[in-house]
Simulated scan of single mutants.
Amino acid sequence: MEIVNTAFRLFAESGYDLVQMKDIAEACDISKSLLQHYFPKKIVLLSTMLNELMLSAFTYSNEQLTALSAEQRTMIQMSFLLRTLDENPKIEHFIRDVFQSPELTTELVLVTLDWLEAIGVDGETIAIRYAINFSVSGGMAVFFKRKLLQASVEAISENIGHSFYLLLGESTEKINQIYLSTAKYNTDHYYEQFIDYLHSHATINLSLEIKN
């Protein structure tokens, strides 16, 4: 985890492409060969970080939002995740690198798919996977260009959720009801609880990347 935390800091600060394995080894004060014993390739490190971050975020929902429906939890989770990226440039930098890799985008979809099925989102696995790919990939493309497009984070989050459930066959009326029912959670109070939870439960040290 010391290696993962060090590499995460370097990736978040400088970007995945500019950081070499020798840079990570030097920052950890170990040899490159020892680093590659644990992580043969740089993308393995990035994959490990992605999994740790996503699981930490999803664990919050599993432990703190258990009284809510699966649909409500997905809407709230998306809102919190996008707000976290918007308010923390280093984390956005890291996630942008993830979406530039087809391999890691697929992994993000698989981690998300496991979570959605675990919390009881209805639908065939292939349909849920397609809906995630379509809504999240398209939504994140807009998110990364939000200033140019003058799109708000709230609107992007809402549209990702809407498109996801429309692809699963839900009616627009029901989706709107779900979104409205989450309004009280999309506040500073609940968002700050989410950030506090990440700081205290994430296996990756987020103290320098996410404002508390």
Rank of each mutant, 00 (worst) to 15 (best):
E2Q: 09
I3C: 02
I3S: 03
I3F: 03
I3K: 03
R9E: 14
L10K: 00
L10M: 01
L10S: 00
D23Y: 03
I24A: 07
E26F: 11
E26I: 10
A27S: 15
A27K: 15
C28G: 00
D29S: 12
S31H: 12
K32M: 14
P40V: 01
S47E: 15
S47L: 02
M54V: 15
M54E: 14
L55P: 01
S56V: 02
L65N: 02
T66H: 07
L68Q: 09
A70E: 08
Q72A: 04
I76E: 12
Q77K: 10
L81S: 13
L81M: 14
R83I: 09
N88H: 05
K90T: 06
F94K: 00
D97L: 05
E103G: 02
E103C: 03
E103K: 11
T105N: 08
L110M: 15
T112N: 13
D114I: 06
D114S: 12
D114F: 04
E117A: 14
I119L: 11
I119H: 08
I119T: 06
D122G: 04
D122K: 10
G123P: 11
E124N: 07
T125H: 10
A127I: 10
A127N: 05
A131T: 02
I132E: 10
N133D: 12
S135E: 07
S135C: 02
G139C: 10
M140D: 00
L148Q: 12
Q150V: 10
A155L: 15
A155G: 08
N159F: 09
G161L: 03
H162G: 01
L168T: 01
E170L: 14
S171H: 04
Y185Q: 11
N186H: 06
T187N: 05
D188H: 06
H189N: 05
E209H: 08
E209T: 13
N212G: 09
